[in-house]
Simulated assay, not measured.
Amino acid sequence: MGELEIATVAPRGAERLVRLSVAGELDAATVPRLRAALADVVGRRPARVELDLAGVTFCSSAAVTALRVAQRAMPGRLVITDARRPVRRVLELCGLTESFGLTPVAQPGG
């Protein structure tokens, strides 16, 4: 069973910004925790959610689905502020880098 850590910084003032930092593996065993954390954030009705995935070492299709569901339910904007290359690649292959505010992964040699 994969380990997952999620840290939330509550919204501050008028900016209504929530930051979530996620570390570990996003797989079938841990996605329910991610879904619960994202549902909590959606309930706060923030203007912007910044999701830091720099500590995520694996991202399954179930995690991608959870991110898309949260993005659609979000009253504001959900962006990914950082992600390791393998996670970025998964999002790129799903055509979601732009949707989450990430630039595409550069291809080797150009």
Rank of each mutant, 00 (worst) to 15 (best):
D82L: 00
E98D: 12
Q71S: 15
A7K: 09
Q107Y: 02
A47E: 13
L53T: 10
E15L: 12
A47R: 10
Q107F: 09
V42R: 01
S99K: 10
P46R: 01
L102V: 11
G95V: 03
E92H: 14
A66L: 07
P104D: 05
G13R: 00
V105T: 11
D82R: 06
A62P: 06
L17W: 09
G2A: 15
A28F: 13
V56E: 07
I80F: 02
T30A: 07
T57N: 11
L26I: 11
T103F: 00
A83S: 11
T57I: 11
T30E: 04
Q71A: 15
R19D: 14
G109V: 07
A47I: 01
G109P: 06
G55E: 04
R84C: 11
D82V: 04
R88A: 14
V69S: 10
R72G: 10
A62L: 13
D82Q: 08
L96A: 04
A83Q: 04
D52P: 03
D40L: 10
P86F: 02
C59G: 11
R48H: 15
R44A: 13
L96T: 04
T97M: 05
R85Y: 00
A47G: 14
T8A: 14
L53G: 08
T81R: 03
T97F: 00
C59P: 10
E25R: 15
R85K: 09
P11W: 01
V18M: 07
G109M: 05
A36Q: 13
L102K: 06
G76M: 07
P108H: 05
P46C: 09
L93K: 12
D27E: 12
A29W: 12
A62M: 11
L20R: 01
P32H: 02
S21N: 01
L53M: 14
D52K: 00
L4A: 08
A73L: 14
E3C: 09
P46Y: 04
Q71K: 09
G2Q: 12
P108G: 07
R16I: 06
A37Y: 04
R35A: 12
L93C: 12
A28Y: 12
R77C: 14
P75Y: 05
P75M: 08
R88E: 07
R16D: 13
T57C: 08
M74F: 06
A66G: 08
Q71N: 13
L102F: 03
T30Y: 05
G43L: 11
T103H: 02
F58K: 06
F100R: 03
R85I: 14
A7Y: 00
V69N: 07
A62C: 08
R68C: 15
A73F: 09
L4F: 07
T103L: 12
A39N: 11
G55C: 06
L67V: 10
S99W: 09
R33G: 11
G24D: 07
E3K: 14
E98Y: 04
S99V: 15
T57K: 07
R68I: 15
D27H: 08
A23T: 10
R77T: 15
V49G: 04
R33W: 03
V69D: 15
E98V: 12
L26Y: 02
R35H: 06
A73C: 12
L91T: 09
V87K: 02
